[in-house]
Every structure is written in C-alpha cells, then in structure tokens.
C-alpha cells in the first residue's frame, strides 16, 4: 500500500504547494535583477559616502568627514538652493498644464491633432530641448536677441549670468513638463462624472465656483500624479543642466544631481566618497516624496480591500 501511495503523494505535494511557490518563481528574475542594479547600489552608495576614494586605489574610511566638508562647501549650498528654485518654479507646470487642458477640452474641428501637437514636446529628448533653448538664448544671434535689444538688454546672455542662468534652464524644462501635466489633466477631465457637473449646474454653480468645488476635487488623481512627476522631475534635473550650462557660470546654475556627477566623474576629479555624500543628501530629500507616494498607495490598497 505504501508503495502505491508514494507516487500520487508527490503530485499532491506540488498541487498543494503550487500556489505558494509559484509567485516566487515568477518574481525571482525581476526581483533579483532589480535588487542587484537598484536596491543594493543605494546602500553601497551610502556606504561609500563614509570613505575617501578615487575609484581606483584602496579607499580610506573617513567617517563623517565628507558630510562635514559639505557643510562648508559654498557650491553645495548654491546647488541645494537651485534645487529649491527648481522645486518651486517647476511646479508652475501643474497649473499651466491644467489651464491648457481646460482650454483644449472642447470638441471642434481638428482638436485631436491640435492636442497631439500640444503633447509632443514631452516625447522629445531633454537633450534636444536643451540644445534648442540654448540656441534661443544666444545673446547675438539667438531667437530672443531682437527682443532683448528692444528692452535695452543688447547682448545680454541669460545662461552666462549667475542670476538668470537657473531660471533660463527651468523655463526650458517647463516646456516638456507642461505637456506632461496637460496629458494627465486632459485624461482626468475626460473621466469626470458628467452627472455631477450637470447637478452642479442645476444648482446654479458657474464658472470658477463650479471649477473649484466640483471639477477640481474630481481631478484629485490627476493633480496627485502631476505633482509627483513634477517634484521628481525637478529633483532629477540633470540633462538640461548638463546640456545648457554644465552648472556654470562658476557653479551658479548647478543642481545637486549635476554637482554630484561633477565631483565624482568629471574632469574636476574622481571624488567618489564626496560625490556619494551629495547623492545621499539628494536621496534623503527624495525619500520624503517617495514615502508620501507609497503611503498614499498603501491607503488606496486598504480601501480597495475593504
């Protein structure tokens, strides 16, 4: 009897445990890959930030030395402050995107094509956008040169001036970002419950009142996504800075992302430890937003399950 039972028993074990084991088989390739290339490097980087290392010769443990140096580094503060400017002014993409979405949410001849043409700066590489705007800003033969002449700023170079360079880059960065927010809001407007709008209109709600009390709350999801991607975009700003000014003049348009790269990997030297310390600061700032995002997803999950 025992011999007879052994074969079907093995099958039942797999059948019984299939549902328990399968998820791990499906997860394994992706999770291992992601851990090696994304999760582990975060901790390695934080570790490196306590060392002095040029990337080749043996590293020396220096404790908090890199962070103490950061506190005295004028260029670190300039970059950090520029990141704050990015965060504030990049946010303009959200209301502008919303305004444009309301403007374009109509049914007239050719509107589909017009919407597509409004979207598409978003799919163009930031390298290309950066190059276009750099050329626009050229003091003598750039596109805005005639306008600068008009207001008496002949030969003024936006990107070479320490007070204006960052704003010039942010302005260029807004171009694709507005398109991104526009896409999110047009989708949001499309999914709005028409009955609520009609009910609001019946109650005499009009114009701004209708928008603020009935439309905007329904666009919550779009607004949330727009803010998240804009914050992440502002903190990740690297491409535009690298293309347009390389942090110049004298580091005045630098941001943490580019300053880190400059310290760790450019002609200025290979200061891996110091670079990692800058990256860790940037990561810590970003972590607030990431945790906020995850907290919201977690809340939604719980609501879904109840």
């Amino acid at each position: 009897m025992e011999l007879n039972n052994s074969k079907p028993k093995r099958i039942t074990w797999w059948q019984k445990n299939q549902v328990k084991i399968s998820p791990w088989i499906f997860l394994a390739p992706g999770l291992i890959f992601f851990s090696i290339y994304v999760i582990a490097p975060i901790f390695v980087s934080i570790g490196i930030s306590f060392y002095q290392w040029d990337g080749l010769s043996p590293s020396t443990y220096v404790g908090l030395q890199n962070y103490i140096e950061l506190l005295d580094d004028e260029y670190f503060y300039i970059s950090l402050w520029n990141n704050v400017k990015w965060l504030i002014f990049f946010m303009l993409a959200v209301p502008i995107g919303l305004g444009l979405a309301i403007f374009l949410n109509q049914i007239v001849f050719g509107i589909r094509l017009i919407k597509s043409l409004f979207f598409f700066p978003f799919v163009i590489s930031q390298v290309v956008i950066g190059l276009i705007f750099t050329w626009f800003y050229q003091p003598n033969y750039g596109v805005i040169a005639p306008f600068l002449d008009l207001i008496g700023l002949e030969g003024f170079s936006i990107l070479a001036n320490e007070d204006t360079a960052t704003y010039g880059i942010i302005f260029a960065g807004l171009y694709p970002q507005i398109a991104y927010c526009l896409i999110l809001y047009l989708t949001g407007l499309n999914n709005i419950n028409p009955e609520q709008i009609e009910a609001g209109r019946m109650d005499g709600a009009k114009g701004f009142h209708l928008f603020w009390n009935i439309v905007l709350p329904q666009l919550r999801h779009a607004t949330f996504l727009a803010i998240v991607v804009t914050v992440i975009g502002a903190l990740r700003s690297f491409d535009m800075v690298a293309i347009m000014t390389q942090g110049g003049p004298y580091g005045y348009s630098n941001v943490l992302a580019y300053y880190m790269f400059e310290q760790a990997l450019s002609e200025y030297g290979y200061r891996m430890g110091y670079g990692s310390a800058i990256a860790t600061v940037l990561f810590t700032i970003m972590m607030f937003y990431i945790l906020f995002f995850i907290y919201r997803m977690y809340r939604n999950e719980r609501e879904d399950n109840n």
Binding site: P41, I48, G55, L265, G275, F283, I294
Partner: peptide
C-alpha cells in the same frame, strides 16, 4: 513598494556602484 520606491530614486545614488 520596493519596486515603486526604487523607480523614483535619484540616479546619482546608483551611479557609482552601477558603474
């Protein structure tokens, strides 16, 4: 959530180890 968080991380924190 680990997948989501990793997706939003700044590239610079990965740069040196990945390189």
């Amino acid at each position: 959530f680990i997948f989501i968080a990793g997706n939003f991380v700044p590239f610079q924190i990965l740069m040196i180890p990945v390189r």
